[in-house]
Each structure stands twice: as structure tokens, then as C-alpha cells.
């Protein structure tokens, strides 16, 4: 019997400090046993448990895309015991990854559709995975629009990649910050809901929005999309809840009868409207 609690051993291959507050770091992991990489067969939108012996595990969205080979990547906010310890670890250190876990963005449904990615703050991780995935299969999708905001320019994740995507003509980028005193800032200034209202295409049955961000951003973006004609089943969200097992057994992350870890984390707004608000 496979032990679903046993992580794959990995080595930290690379660490990048992403943001000016130094609270977000991106870790690239390489599997110690090369055959484990094939077993870790994931889709953009899934998550994994990062496991540190002696500290515990944390559920983190996978920031790399399955089209990127040779490593898996996670961007981690420093919050609690495990994430703080991880931030203090070094390249070459040994730890574990357990997964992939949960469902993913509905890539089969999204084939041939226009996709609007709306992200705020450090919730951009699985959205990065999604953008890389879509760009690698660019002919499978219609228009791709991205609205991504952070408090300041220095708080944006993956800044080099954002700049590269800005230069492409097959993805419509709208980067924004709440405010900045940088006179050379050449992108938008304003909150994500406002920029979404100005830049996102109108909703129709062929257009889907994927929205990840802090609760306050989601709260004010949702009415904008409603007004813009997006159907609740075309608005896709990814939830977070406290987790332990990640496989639907330990009982804490449920929202009604659904476990965020196994039946989610991805739900449509239509589904969420029929569920208790326990997230």
C-alpha cells in the first residue's frame, strides 16, 4: 500500500528573495530520486505539502508549471513555524514534498476560451504556473488577459517574467500597484478591482476569470465582474484553509461536505454560492 503521508525527498536547489520586505522567497526543489519527478505528475492550480523533518508540513500552491522540467517551484510567505524555518534554510538542504494534492484549474473546460487572470499580492503563485502553462500551449486558448497587483512595485512577484510577458503580443498584461513614488513606474497605479473594471474584457460564455488574492480584493473584484457580465460558473477561485493531511482525511479544511484539500482548492463562484462561507 502506498503511504500517502510519505513525502518525496528533495534538495533545495535555489532560493530567491522575491519582495522588498523579504517575506516572500521562491524555492526551487530537485527530487533526490529522479524517478520521483515523474511520479509528481501535476497540473497548474494544484498544491503540495512542503515537509521539514522536526518542524512539520505546510500546504503551498505549486508555482512552477508542469511544462517546466527538472525542478518544482514554490513561493512561500513567512508566517508560522514551518515557513519561518524554511526561510532560514539554505541551498543544498534536504527536505520533502508530498503531492501533488487537490484539483486544478479546469484546463479541459478552458480550451478554446478567453482566460482572464486576476491576481493580488502573493496569491500569484499558481497563477504564474497557469500563465506559463497557457503560453506553452498558446494555440489552445483565445485571448489571455492578466491583471496583477501588489502594494508597491517591490512587492510584485516574478518581476523579470512580468516584464518579459509585457513585451509579448499574445498576452495582454495589466500590472498595477496600489501606490508608488517611483517616477519611472511605467505600468498602472490603482487597486485590482479598479484596473479590472477598466481593462478586463466583458464577460460572455467563452470568457473565464481565474481570481486569486486576499479576501478584500476578491470581495471588491467580484461585483465588478458581475457587472461586466461574468456568469458565476465562469468565475474560478482557489481557496485556502488550514490543512494537515492534504488528502481529505484529517477533517479540518472542509467547507460543507467538500474538503478544500481534496475536492478543491479550485471551485467556481457558482459552487461557492451554494456552500457555507467557512473559508
Amino acid at each position: 500500500m502506498e503511504n500517502p503521508y510519505l513525502p518525496y525527498p528533495v534538495r533545495i536547489d535555489n532560493i530567491i528573495t522575491e519582495t522588498e520586505d523579504k517575506n516572500l522567497k521562491t524555492f526551487k526543489f530537485v527530487f533526490l530520486n529522479p524517478e520521483d519527478e515523474a511520479k509528481f505528475d501535476y497540473h497548474a492550480g494544484q498544491f503540495a505539502e512542503l515537509s521539514i523533518a522536526g518542524k512539520g508540513e505546510i500546504p503551498i500552491g505549486i508555482a512552477s508549471s508542469p511544462t517546466e522540467k527538472g525542478f518544482v517551484m514554490f513561493t512561500v510567505n513567512k508566517v508560522g513555524l514551518v515557513s519561518s524555518h524554511l526561510h532560514a534554510m539554505k541551498e543544498g538542504d534536504i527536505m520533502g514534498i508530498r503531492g501533488p494534492l487537490g484539483n486544478w484549474f479546469p484546463w479541459e473546460t478552458l480550451k478554446g476560451k478567453n482566460v482572464v487572470i486576476i491576481g493580488g499580492g502573493f496569491a500569484f503563485t499558481t497563477l504564474r504556473a497557469s500563465i506559463i502553462h497557457m503560453l506553452a500551449h498558446r494555440d489552445q486558448f483565445g485571448d489571455i488577459t492578466v491583471v496583477y497587483g501588489a502594494r508597491t512595485p517591490g512587492m510584485l512577484l516574478y518581476r523579470e517574467e512580468l516584464a518579459q510577458w509585457e513585451k509579448r503580443d499574445d498576452i495582454d498584461m495589466h500590472i498595477t500597484v496600489d501606490s508608488t513614488d517611483d517616477p519611472d513606474w511605467k505600468y498602472n497605479t490603482g487597486f485590482v478591482p479598479t484596473i479590472t473594471e477598466q481593462k478586463a474584457p466583458p464577460g460572455d460564455e467563452n470568457t473565464y476569470a481565474i481570481i486569486c488574492g486576499p479576501p478584500i480584493m476578491i470581495k471588491f473584484t467580484q461585483p465588478v465582474l458581475d457587472k461586466n457580465g461574468y456568469h458565476p460558473e465562469n468565475m474560478i477561485m482557489s481557496l485556502e484553509n488550514r490543512m494537515k493531511c492534504g488528502i481529505g482525511m484529517c477533517g479540518r479544511c472542509n467547507v460543507g461536505r467538500h474538503f478544500v484539500c481534496k475536492d478543491g482548492p479550485v471551485f467556481t463562484l457558482g459552487q461557492l454560492n451554494r456552500m457555507p462561507k467557512e473559508y
Binding site: 523533518a53 522536526g54 518542524k55 512539520g56 493531511c245 482525511m249 484529517c250 477533517g251
Partner: peptide, 10 residues
């Protein structure tokens, strides 16, 4: 009732 926690004890 089956809910559980997982903790490392060093």
C-alpha cells in the same frame, strides 16, 4: 469521530 492533527516531536 476521526479528526486528527499531525505534529513533529523532536
Amino acid at each position: 469521530c476521526w479528526c486528527f492533527d499531525i505534529q513533529d516531536e523532536t
